[in-house]
Design a binder for these strands. Structure first.
Lengths: 228, 228
DNA sequence: ATTCCTACTGACAATTTTTGTCACTCACCT
DNA sequence: AGGTGAGTGACAAAAATTGTCAGTAGGAAT
């Protein structure tokens, strides 16, 4: 990656974010040294692109939106389309529809030669009818998460004991090969994980729950080591 | 004026004009040689900024950048970003990078309020270090597929017998939870599936193979019932 | 059919930039 | 007081950039 490419990418990166990003993170993404990032920022500023930097916080693109033209490289398009296929196969029917229409929009702006090379890509993600049950679980839980509605679930734990619980669904974690609901459990009065394949039944309740500082997806994730 | 400054200025210059401008005029304004202008244009194009040139006329900024603003509905963006995360977590590091930069491009064109609602979406796909071995397998096999290079593999079958085979890698199938290489096996003289977790070793050979009507991903997939 | 005009490409060597590293300073927050 | 992160200066090695020259190609006007 040449310097100029990097500069254009940097503008894109900055305009893709709402929050500030540190020079170190940038260096990480761009695979250059931190020193180079400072120099890049300086180059951009002297090319009349306003970037605000604050010690202890990071960089933020100035408000007056410089519009960088959106075009995907072949491999970027490939990654998006492959991702779209995964969403279609591994999540719920509603999201699948959205993935498909997004796919169409992307394809419609790609030049012919890119479409051709995309056809030769080796990945195939089959849509299995047998996964319909999972897809339904996805739909129910995603909507419950988004609308912050409590759910009543019959859940079978590792030792085959089935319990009924009231859950506050916070997030859905996708490990490769298994989906897990992350929720606050009223029964246990704390965060718990629930594997999708162990739900015997799920009913969305009318009742809303309210995520707070001490009860939210971020709070839970922050209490565990790894990244999101 | 450094090259990068010149490139930004060139974009500004081009986007300020409705009529084409010749390379020579540009060279004049920028105070560089005409040859350099051609190289600059190429740099911009390889940074995915579409510029159209016509002999006898000059250069014009691609219409694509101005006219159809590729817009996504919130849920379409959600589907694409979720897919991108899956690609990052479940495939190889190279595709992961492409997914990430595609993500940035999408985010950079979304209005603020959409970005905010995307931040509240419940799905999280963790990137596990323990999957590095798989990711490496992905990289090797994807590239072998794309370049149509034979591979020599040590493979352990269902009954724990390890065999060495020469394979013509045709495609990679992603079932949820397991990846499978689809290849023509020289040992068995026919198509075979190989689960990623059963490869003991994979070496890409120098030798190319040639897919034909009777030996290709399409041909194999057509011979099985399901869709892709 | 010939001649402009202009986009493009390749090669080469001199020049200029870019890069990482190291060793700092400064400002802010807890 | 210690941690974090922006920002600077200097230097040598590595890499990109540049102009020059020599050519190809395609359209349009003559």
């Amino acid at each position: 990656m040449t310097k100029s490419e990097r500069l254009f990418n940097l503008v894109t990166l900055l305009s893709s974010r709402r929050t500030a990003i540190t020079a170190e993170s940038i260096a990480d993404v761009m695979e250059v040294s931190v020193r180079t990032v400072y120099r890049d920022i300086q180059s951009l500023q002297s090319a009349n692109i306003s970037i605000e930097g604050e010690p202890g916080v990071g960089y933020l693109l100035g408000k007056r939106n410089h519009l960088p033209p959106l075009m995907f490289k072949t491999q970027e398009a490939l990654a998006l389309l492959l991702g779209s296929k995964m969403v279609q196969a591994f999540t719920d029917p509603q999201l699948a529809k959205s993935a498909q229409s997004a796919e169409e929009k992307i394809l419609s702006v790609l030049p012919e030669r890119q479409k051709i090379s995309l056809e030769q890509q080796p990945y195939r993600i089959p849509l299995l009818d047998s996964d319909n049950h999972f897809r339904n679980t996805h739909l129910i839980l995603r909507q419950a998460c988004e609308n912050k509605l409590k759910v009543k679930a019959l859940y079978k734990d590792g030792r085959d004991r089935t319990t009924e619980r009231i859950l506050w669904p916070l997030g859905v974690i996708g490990w490769f090969g298994k989906w897990t609901l992350l929720a606050y459990c009223e029964l246990r009065q704390s965060y718990r994980n629930f594997r999708f394949d162990r739900f015997a039944q799920i009913d969305v309740l009318e009742e809303e729950f309210f995520a707070s500082e001490e009860c939210s997806l971020e709070h839970y994730l922050a209490s565990i080591p790894k990244d999101c």
